[in-house]
């Protein structure tokens, strides 16, 4: 069951055009469409931009210095990190659990599958607006239910309430993504192996965790990683729910960059924030990726 990197199928090195062309086309597309925007943003990050007058001065790393020194940036980054650290594992675990159960094809599994996929197609801002009415303390459904259970939270008028509300909605929205990816991963498994394993261990838990999980671990950990990255970039959901308030306490990084760049046309700062984030996150996933792969090899 070990996943090995083998050069070419069958162990023979073949220089064939097909893989090179395939990869090349994909890379070409991405580069063609992102090169100009990224270079443009990079150039902006090295200058001061003022609406109406355009670029007014070259400041080199000045924007980067200011962003690194700004409390707002670090706060947004920290909140985004916290948010992602809570959301991604929960969603991945729940997604896998649901996918596993559905994968067992219990009665009605098709209906479950269709329903569980539905949130994937809900727009984040729409869910945020819905959340405002769900968590409103003046007649919101969730607030009402939870209050009956004794839990009174200032959902949209406190920092922790806002983050909690956002997380609840995030989990609702994105577990379906992890569910789908897990399902895709599980679909490649060979079922005969289950029968064989069951004969040996007689425990479905063992089959799930000792056999299925390690095989789809790469896909699953990838889903986690992707979900983590996306959660760091969460924008519409929380922004529509809390507008970043109270103050800027629930302002995640993406909305901060959005306001800076698009609302205030401060391209210099906004781009610098983007690139700083890019560097930080890239380092993180590079390390994480390596750790992940190590687990698999073990």
């Amino acid at each position: 069951m070990r996943v090995e990197e083998r050069p070419g199928i069958g162990g023979r090195r073949r220089i064939s055009w097909f893989p090179y062309l395939s990869l090349f086309l994909a890379v070409l597309w991405v580069v063609a469409f992102t090169l100009y925007p990224l270079l443009s943003a990079l150039w902006y990050s090295l200058n001061t931009y003022v609406l109406g007058r355009g670029i007014v001065g070259f400041v080199g790393l000045g924007n980067y210095r200011e962003v690194l020194a700004s409390q707002e940036f670090w706060h947004s980054l920290g909140v985004s990190l916290l948010y992602a650290l809570l959301a991604a594992p929960l969603e991945t675990a729940l997604g896998f659990g649901l996918a596993w159960l559905v994968h067992l094809r219990p009665p009605g599994y098709r209906a479950f599958q269709a329903i569980f996929l539905a949130p994937l197609f809900a727009m984040d801002v729409a869910v945020g607006y819905l959340g405002v009415t769900l968590f409103s303390q003046q007649g919101g459904l969730l607030d009402h239910i939870l209050r009956r259970l004794g839990l009174e939270i200032s959902w949209l008028s406190s920092t922790w309430g806002g983050l909690a509300g956002g997380l609840i909605l995030d989990i609702w929205l994105w577990t379906s993504f992890c569910f789908l990816v897990s399902l895709a991963g599980l679909s490649t498994l060979n079922e005969e192996m289950y029968e064989a394993a069951l004969l040996e261990t007689k425990s479905s838990w063992t089959v799930a965790f000792r056999i299925a999980l390690p095989v789809i671990w790469p896909v699953l950990s990838l889903a986690f990683l992707i979900r983590f990255l996306e959660a760091l970039k969460t924008f519409g959901l929380v922004y529509a729910l809390t507008s970043g308030g109270p103050g800027t306490s629930t302002l995640l990084l993406s909305p901060l960059v959005y306001l800076t760049t698009v609302r205030f046309f401060n391209f210099g700062h906004g781009s610098a924030m983007g690139f700083l984030f890019l560097v930080l996150a890239s380092v993180f996933i590079a390390l994480f990726f390596r750790q992940l792969r190590r687990v698999v090899e073990a």
Partner: peptide, 12 residues
């Protein structure tokens, strides 16, 4: 490829 997903879209 994965790093293409990192940049907050507002920047570009």
């Amino acid at each position: 490829f994965l790093s293409q997903r990192i940049m907050p879209p507002a920047v570009v």
